[in-house]
Each structure stands twice: as structure tokens, then as C-alpha cells.
């Protein structure tokens, strides 16, 4: 099988290139960790006061790295005098949480963890009954929690884009692509083999990045892990096909790097780090042609709001459409070398 031979060769080449492997697998983790420390200055456990909580709920909260302090009675003043991050009051079925919200990141994480713990205790119904109040700011104050899912998507996109693009570029520059086309291989076989060969590494990278973000960096994660992986894989496929496609327009590795400020950097701004709602209409429209916008939206929905794949079908379809178009254009672009 020609495709298998090509996939094997691509993988063997990458495996031999230790530096690229390190870039692919460890660089995202290092940058993510740095970001994590930037946005989460103190690593102390959040302090939560509780009134009227059951024993299993307290255990669940403590398991989520929350320092739980039980009160018989407490109010907003207690939060401020005792330096709590939040106060959870349980009255019958209703959950009332008051968050200090001095650091929106902490509040967000705390609310998320309480929601998780509560829904584990009382099933899905309990989630709806949580009523949050804020001493400072409101529920829209959020940063790393929203940033986290976007960053996960971004790093998958960036590194896969760069490495696959340069991979095919090397093949163009060294003349091996032309040599390949002097064999009976078909153009779509080359594109498919590239997608698969690099795709396998992209899958591994995605899994590492997602697990590291959730397990080690404690990124907010309300939804299903495999949903996150599905979204990232689709995004990786877009990055792969786009990287390969753009390498057509570069004649050296340096020129490939020049695509980063044009193709990659703008996507960060349109991915939702800066709220898009307030932007001019034409700017909002631009975001519609950015693959990362759809991926970030889906990741936010899953990781932050706990939605499922069914809720982000539109985003998934958009990503799939991007990938399909790029793959098709890739097959066309190879015509430059051989018409068949």
C-alpha cells in the first residue's frame, strides 16, 4: 500500500527529529504552565464557609481542594472578616452561594467546583438551584477560566500548523515531493498520508495537552474530557490541512514562519479572549472565517459551561467544513507539479 508506506516514512522521519518532537509535545505544556502561573498568582486553596451542608457534600468539596469551614450562621460580613472566598448556604433544596470575587479566577473556580460537588450529590437538578451572588463584580468577571479552553485550542492549532507546514515544505524544497510525483502515487494519496502521519502525532499532542491542562493545571472542566478531545482533534485537522496548504505559498522555512503573524496571531484575538460582542459588526464578521473562533467557542461551552457535543454541533460542522475545504485545495495545489 502506497499510503501506508508514505505514512510510515513520515512518522519515522518525525520520530528521528527529536527537537521537533519536543516542540510538539512539551512546548505547549511549558507555555500553558507559564500562563497558568501568570493568571493564578496564589495557589492557596479557596476558603469556603458553609452553612447547613451535609457531611457528604463537605467531603466532596474538600476533595475538590477547597478548605471548608462550617458555620452555624454567617452573612456577607463573615466573608470579609474571616477572609473567605465564598459562603455556601444551604436551605432545603436551594443552594445560595456568595462569592467575595476579589479575584475573579478564584471565584469562578470555586463556583465551578461547588457546582460540580453539588451536582454529584444531588444530581443534575441541584445545579439549577444554585444561586450565586457576588460581593465584588458579577458573574461576568472571568479571565483564565475562559482563557484556559481558548489556550488549549490555540496551542494545538499553532504547533500542529507549524510542524505539518514545515514538514511538507521540506519535502518541496528538497525536491522529494517532485520525486514522489514521479512515482505512480496519486495526489490525494499524498495528502491523505500527510494528514494521517501528522494526524497521529497531533492526536498524541492533543491528548497530552488536554490531560495536562485538566489534571496538572486544574483548568476548569465541567464537561466531558473526550468531548474536549474531539473538538481539539477537529481543530488539529484544520491546522494540519491549513499548514500543508500554506506551505505551498512559502519557499523556505523562514517564509513559513512569516505566516504566523498573519494567519495565527489574529486568530487569538478573534477566539474570544477579548469579548466579541462589543466589537464592530465588520470585526465580528471577520471572526466567522477564523477556525479558532469556532473551536474556542466549542471548548468554552464544554469545559466552562459543561455543555455536550450536541450543543456545539454548529461549531463542529464549521471546523469540519474548514478542514474539508483545505484538504480539497491541497489536492488541487499539487496539480502544480503533476496534472494527474
Amino acid at each position: 500500500m502506497r499510503i501506508v508506506a508514505l505514512i510510515k516514512r513520515i512518522m519515522l522521519q518525525l520520530l528521528r527529529d527529536k527537537r521537533t518532537m519536543a516542540l510538539l509535545f512539551f512546548a505547549p505544556l511549558i507555555v500553558l504552565t507559564l500562563m497558568y502561573f501568570f493568571f493564578n498568582g496564589d495557589n492557596e486553596n479557596p476558603q469556603l464557609g458553609v452553612v447547613g451542608a451535609t457531611e457528604p457534600l463537605i467531603t466532596a468539596l474538600e476533595n475538590a481542594s477547597i478548605d471548608v469551614i462550617s458555620y452555624k450562621e454567617a452573612d456577607q460580613q463573615t466573608i470579609l472578616t474571616d477572609g473567605l472566598d465564598g459562603l455556601l448556604e444551604i436551605d432545603g433544596d436551594g443552594f445560595q452561594i456568595t462569592l467575595e470575587n476579589n479575584d475573579p479566577g478564584t471565584s469562578r473556580a470555586l463556583l465551578m467546583q461547588v457546582t460540580q460537588a453539588a451536582s454529584m450529590q444531588g444530581g443534575a437538578g441541584a445545579t439549577a438551584n444554585i444561586n450565586a451572588e457576588y460581593i465584588y463584580g458579577d458573574e461576568d468577571t472571568e479571565f483564565f477560566d475562559v482563557l484556559g479552553p481558548i489556550l488549549v485550542g490555540f496551542f494545538v492549532f499553532f504547533f500542529v500548523f507549524l510542524i505539518s507546514g514545515i514538514g511538507l515544505l521540506k519535502e518541496r524544497v528538497s525536491g522529494t515531493l517532485e520525486r514522489l510525483l514521479a512515482t505512480p502515487i496519486r495526489r490525494w494519496e499524498i495528502v491523505l498520508a500527510y494528514l494521517t502521519g501528522f494526524g497521529i502525532f497531533a492526536i498524541i499532542q492533543t491528548i497530552i495537552v488536554v490531560f495536562y491542562s485538566i489534571q496538572v493545571l486544574d483548568m476548569v472542566m465541567v464537561g466531558q474530557v473526550w468531548h474536549v478531545i474531539v473538538v481539539n482533534l477537529l481543530l488539529a485537522l484544520v491546522a494540519l490541512s491549513l499548514g500543508i496548504l500554506l506551505s505551498t505559498f512559502a519557499s523556505s522555512e523562514f517564509q513559513m514562519v512569516q505566516f504566523i503573524p498573519i494567519v495565527v496571531v489574529p486568530q487569538i484575538f478573534f477566539a474570544g479572549i477579548i469579548p466579541l460582542e462589543g466589537m464592530a459588526d465588520w470585526l465580528q464578521n471577520i471572526s466567522r472565517i477564523m477556525p479558532l473562533y469556532y473551536a474556542a467557542d466549542a471548548l468554552k461551552a464544554i469545559m466552562y459551561r459543561g455543555e455536550g457535543l450536541a450543543d456545539v454541533t454548529g461549531n463542529l460542522l464549521a471546523l469540519a467544513a474548514f478542514a474539508a475545504v483545505f484538504i480539497f485545495l491541497n489536492i488541487i495545489a499539487l496539480k502544480r507539479y503533476r496534472k494527474l
Binding site: 508506506a5 519515522l12 528521528r16
Partner: peptide, 18 residues
């Protein structure tokens, strides 16, 4: 048009298997 990361034999058998 050769793959420098691969051995001579790997290059040969890659092209042969196409």
C-alpha cells in the same frame, strides 16, 4: 531527492514500495 533522516535502505524501500 532523499530523506536525510532516514537510512539508505529506508529511502530505497520507501520509494520501492510506491
Amino acid at each position: 531527492a532523499l530523506y536525510p533522516e532516514l537510512t539508505g535502505k529506508e529511502n530505497l524501500s520507501f520509494f520501492a514500495s510506491l
